[in-house]
Design a binder for these strands. Structure first.
Lengths: 192, 192
DNA sequence: GTCATGAATGTTAGTCACTAACATTTATGA
DNA sequence: TCATAAATGTTAGTGACTAACATTCATGAC
């Protein structure tokens, strides 16, 4: 190529993916999710529709494709096993997010806000979180906690987290951490 | 028509819808959800593809279209407001299901089992439960419980319930109520 | 019974998400 | 410079879903 940036550690694949994600988010925000076609996104990113699907598994991809999971599972596995699974999951997630830099929080807000404003996408957030949910369930499955209970607790925590994220995304100033605090507070507040 | 059944209180619309649902479930069970096309379902039910979409909003319809909700909301609203929202939601649902006849439990098992065995449908169960979730959130929103907390608690409970239902559907003999008991037990078991 | 009216269904044609197979360009290292 | 593989393009197709219009069928008034 004619110009090579020394700091350009990103592969071409990563660049294209980034361009597609930006294009998708821009269009979703301006004209709404449903009214935006994959062809439009691809055109705006300067590639073909086909290329879009080589970078994202579906139209929802730019919104929900994520890659946290391992940290979360790790932290949950470190929780004391004498606690109940719901508490372990909640506290483990809290720990994990303390280790994640607040950097990029604004982009998360942008993405979740689009989801929050598109009811048909709420379930997609669940789908995107499927891997995370599985990781949580695995980390919760220890002697004394049957698989079934681990699955239930994982699903409950993810449900609460997604709901909290949707609400948080509609605010402008609250930090990302406050969404997690809200979810965990509801899960831990027991006044039967 | 040539033959009229006196006991035929069902309208033609209801009959067709029933035929479509049976056809869909049969095909989903035998060849899997993804491998079944709406055209196939319609053909088996003796109607057109177009007619299918006049009875169900999507291919998932025969699996997730439901109509409980009002009873649940009612029971939750009757829970003592000094309890925390998660507990109110859980106990309200328990009450509601005590009032629902176990009749039809086998069909529920059939439907949920298909969902449980089709990972891409897990999120659809969430979508199908959106109305129920909204009803729960509404019933939880009382003075002293901010809307945000109600939304979080509703999402957590629905997540737990769906996970419990998926697990239950894979068993053959347990009654439907045991699925609810399992979900609520995890939500109420606090050993922080 | 007949007839009018609306519900239920059919037909046609189209959009859009998504996939497969194969061709072409572009980057990278020996 | 050349070989190799990664990245993208092209073409063609399937299947979910929708819109517009035509047709059949059921139901009540008369």
């Amino acid at each position: 190529m004619l110009v090579t940036n020394i700091h350009d550690v990103a592969s071409k694949r990563e660049i294209t993916q980034q361009r597609l994600q930006v294009a998708a988010l821009d269009l979703f925000e301006v004209q709404g999710y449903e009214a935006t076609s994959v062809a439009q996104i691809a055109a705006r990113a300067g590639v073909t529709e086909m290329t879009f699907f080589r970078h994202f598994t579906s139209k929802e991809g730019p919104l929900v494709d994520d890659a946290y999971d391992p940290v979360i599972g790790q932290e949950i596995a470190h929780q004391p096993t004498h606690s109940d699974p719901l508490t372990r999951a909640a506290r483990g997630i809290q720990m994990a997010w303390r280790r994640v830099p607040e950097v990029g929080g604004e982009e998360v807000r942008r993405r979740v806000r689009i989801v929050a404003k598109t009811p048909t996408l709420h379930a997609s957030l669940t789908r995107g979180a499927a891997a995370t949910e599985a990781a949580i369930a695995d980390a919760l499955t220890v002697p004394g906690t049957p698989r079934r209970d681990a699955l239930i607790a994982a699903a409950a925590v993810m449900g609460a987290l997604n709901a909290a994220l949707r609400e948080w995304s509609l605010t402008d100033d609250l930090p990302l951490g406050s969404a997690f605090d809200a979810a965990l507070a509801v899960l831990e507040d027991r006044r039967g």
